[in-house]
Design a binder for these strands. Structure first.
Length: 552
RNA sequence: UGCCUGAUGGUGUAACGGUAGCACAACUGUUUUUGGUGCAGUUUGUCUUGGUUCGAAUCCAGGUCAGGCAACCA
């Protein structure tokens, strides 16, 4: 570890554990509950857990924390695995907490035998009340004093299905006066006569998180069990279970979860967005889900780079969305194929161009010396952007206007001569002459222009549809803003451009190609795109210093 | 009134008693056949009050602020 890069606090703990011989090698785990789709916050945890194993020569288990049958489903198991693979991570073992149900049951029996657990017949409300408050100790009840034998019998009956949901629970017997609420006789098992996606109807009692997670870690010999800050108060219980059971001492460490500006990260809120139709699906490109980002065109590399850059610490944070965008642009700039697409088109007629057409070459990627070129047809009538022409140009406007000259990318320098307007005063056609000796690559004209425009030959153009995305919320922190977070949804987060013209090369490009549409942004073909109707999602815009200049 | 975390520029994150650094953002300039990219630069920071020390972001004590802690969820 001679890197200049400093270690985060978990890496420091691990390198010490390795140095002191506490562990010969490390084993981490990523433990999602299969009740929803993975999002960028999970990606942080994934990159941490798998990254740690990579850095220190260990391995990582994928473990589904499936102890609540009513919320979980195999659909989620599959999507989680797909997202993980797409991100580029490989787990050494695929595990399920439900694989340990027998073992966990035996652990509970052990605790009862040691007089450390009891069956409680109280209602949920009664138990909550008896727990006291953070400032007041809890009070016991008579069930707490049941004999070991009685508890054993009752617990076996719970397992056998003798009781209904909510009739009885198994609780640990710890300390009702503990300043840590989680130690006030926490629930270990509850009755749920529900179908489990893996164990079916084999069980009707299910372990709670606190009785399943640490023991699962221990069973798998996880050395470093890493979770988020809200589990800090659970650690005492995690340790208590392991100690009382005398099993492999896994340890829990906590880091701060990811928050990002202009988005929400809780599963509950994301679910609302989908169910109430604010977005179209879990993989809507505006969602912070892994599948949404994938569909939008973010690369796995850029997401991993992002997770690397945000760091790991214990303080609450809210990361600028622009950092994610930076990571995406940085990667895409290196790999994206350059293409020309005109949105909001107006006609440009080259008055002195007499050939039927000619084929020009344009570089696929100026950042890649081996990127090669593609043929681009040029002709007398072209499409250009409406905002690349101004009837009365402002200062520092480097585009087209009466008498102004620009270069057409990979083609010729032109000079604007005149223009037509329609009845409403909207410019419809621009007329310009071209300089035949200014052809790209063999320019002998000696003319210097400040602007270069992208264009598409009208008779060769293919129609494309573009989905332009903006941030989903119009405030930085919708979750802590006053009122309902949904009232801060940006109504313009999706703008669909139905009449755009693309260059013909697009027809032959592979489905999963990454594009930069010159001067517009990075684009990626949508899952609903077809050969007959090409649909592209805007992954991210280009940085636009001209737009900033205009705002001044 | 309790317990647990934490506090370094706008946002993240380093500095492990000895020069407060890096990245993003913002802003300049420069290069450019993308107002992209690249390159160079600028601005902005140790929550507070005491103490220990030659020397404190770092150690100690008090305070302040922020977040968390009670679900038959994870």
């Amino acid at each position: 570890m001679s890197d200049e890069k400093s270690l985060n606090f978990i890496e420091e703990i691990i390198s010490q554990d390795l140095a002191t011989g506490k562990h010969k090698s490390i084993l981490t785990r990523f433990p999602p509950e299969p009740n929803g789709y993975l999002h960028i916050g999970h990606a942080k945890s994934i990159c941490l857990n798998f990254g740690l194993a990579e850095t220190f020569g260990g391995a990582t288990n994928l473990r589904f924390d499936d102890t609540n049958p009513v919320t979980e489903d195999t659909e989620y198991v599959e999507s989680i695995k797909a997202d993980l693979k797409w991100l580029g991570f490989n787990w050494i073992k695929e595990c399920y907490a439900s694989d340990y149900f027998d073992q966990l049951y035996a652990f509970a029996v052990q605790l009862i035998e040691k007089g450390l657990a009891y069956v409680d017949d109280s209602s949920a409300e009664a138990i909550a009340q008896q727990k006291g408050t953070p400032t007041q100790p809890g009070t016991g009840n008579a069930f707490r004093e049941r004999s070991i034998q009685e508890n054993l019998t009752l617990f076996a009956e719970m397992k056998a299905g003798k009781y209904n949901d909510g009739e009885k629970v198994l609780r640990a017997k710890i300390d009702l006066a503990s300043p840590n609420m989680h130690m006030r006789d926490p629930l270990l098992y509850r009755i749920k006569k529900a179908h489990h996606h893996r164990t079916g109807d084999q069980w009707c009692i299910y372990p709670m998180y606190d009785f399943a997670h640490g023991q699962s870690d221990s069973i798998e010999n996880i050395t470093h069990s890493i979770c988020t800050l809200e589990f800090i108060p659970h650690r005492a219980l995690y340790d208590w279970c392991i100690e009382q059971l005398g099993i492999f001492p896994s340890h829990q460490y906590e880091f701060a979860r990811l928050n990002m500006t202009y988005t929400v990260m809780s599963k509950r809120k994301l679910l609302q967005l989908v169910q109430e139709g604010h977005v179209q699906s879990w993989d809507d490109p505006r969602m912070p889900t892994i599948s949404g980002m994938r569909r939008r065109g973010y690369t796995a590399e850029s997401i991993r780079d992002f997770c690397d850059r945000i760091g790991i610490a214990k303080r609450e944070n809210i990361i600028d969305f622009s950092l994610l965008e930076f990571c995406v642009r940085e990667h895409l700039n290196k790999i994206a194929q350059r293409r020309m697409v005109v949105t909001d088109p107006i006609k440009l007629v080259i008055t002195n161009y007499e050939q039927a057409e000619e084929i020009l070459d344009s570089e696929n990627n100026p950042e890649d010396p081996n990127g090669g070129t593609r043929p681009v047809p040029f002709s007398k009538e072209l499409w250009i952007q409406a905002d690349d022409f101004m009837e009365v140009p402002t200062k520092k406007y480097f585009r087209l206007g009466p008498g102004l000259s620009v270069r057409l990318k990979s083609a010729y320098i032109i000079e604007c001569e005149s223009f037509d307007k329609d009845a409403e005063g909207k410019v419809t056609t621009v007329y310009a002459k071209y300089f035949p000796n200014s052809k790209s690559g063999s320019d002998t004209s000696g003319i210097h222009v400040k602007g270069t425009l992208h264009w598409v030959s009208a008779k060769h153009a293919i129609p494309v549809e573009l989905n332009e995305y903006d941030r989903l919320f119009n405030v930085e922190d919708p979750s802590s803003a006053e009122g309902d977070f949904k009232s801060y949804i940006n109504p313009h987060s999706l703008h669909t451009v139905t009449t755009a013209w693309g260059e013909p090369a697009l027809l032959n490009d592979p489905l999963d190609a990454r594009f930069q549409f010159l001067r517009k942004g990075y684009f990626y073909q949508d899952t609903n795109s077809t050969k007959d109707k090409l649909v592209f999602n805007r992954t991210v815009t280009l940085k636009d210093t001209w737009a900033k200049e205009q705002k001044k």
